[in-house]
Structures are given as structure tokens and as C-alpha cells.
Amino acid sequence: MEDCEKTLSTLSRLARLELQPEDCEAIESIREFFSTLSEAKRLVEGKQPLYHVWETESHLRIQEAYHQVNIKDLMVEVEEGFVKFPWRGKQ
């Protein structure tokens, strides 16, 4: 359980999410479920990862047409054309 809380805080930091201690149970059981895959290791010896199902079916962009977006149409605070976000806050 202590282990899980450590994992939880790491994941929370990396994902920028608050995770609750009660998520521990779910996370532990999913992790266990994922671990069952290690049985398949011997079956995939020498096999390369498959990241794209057709691997090399791809194309490049040639045409230049694009769709301009007016930044003001988005839900953002705009200041002199710039999008404004909080940063360091009051120090």
C-alpha cells in the first residue's frame, strides 16, 4: 500500500492530476492485469514492436491549403493578440 501511494504521487506529478488514495485499489488491479502480459514474452522473442498497424502505409503533405483559426473564437483570454495564461502567480 505504501508502494502504491508512492506510485500514485509519481503518476500524479507526471500526469498533472490529483489522484485519491482510493484509486490505489483500481490502479493496483489494473497493473496486475497488465502484468499478465509478461507470460507472452517468450512468444514474441525477436519480434519488433508494431506501432502502426500497416507500418509503412503513409503519405506526405504536398498541397498548401489550410484552415486559419481566429484565436478569439477559442475560449481563451487574449491580450494584444497573445493568449494569456497564469504562470508563476503572485510571489
Binding site: 503533405r61 498548401e64 489550410y66 484552415h67 486559419q68 483559426v69 484565436i71 477559442l74 493578440g81
Partner: peptide
């Protein structure tokens, strides 16, 4: 163009946030 969309690769001539599209946003 930009690497993954049709916006201009030389952005210096544009007013702030006027060389943007759904992809680069």
C-alpha cells in the same frame, strides 16, 4: 509551410496569432 500543417514557415510577417490553424494549435 510548417512541419505538419499548411501555415507559413516564415511566421515573422504575421500579426500575433494570425499564422495558426487547428493542427498547430
Amino acid at each position: 509551410t510548417k512541419l505538419f500543417c499548411g501555415c507559413d514557415s516564415d511566421y515573422r510577417v504575421y500579426a500575433t496569432n494570425e499564422n495558426v490553424c487547428p493542427v498547430c494549435l
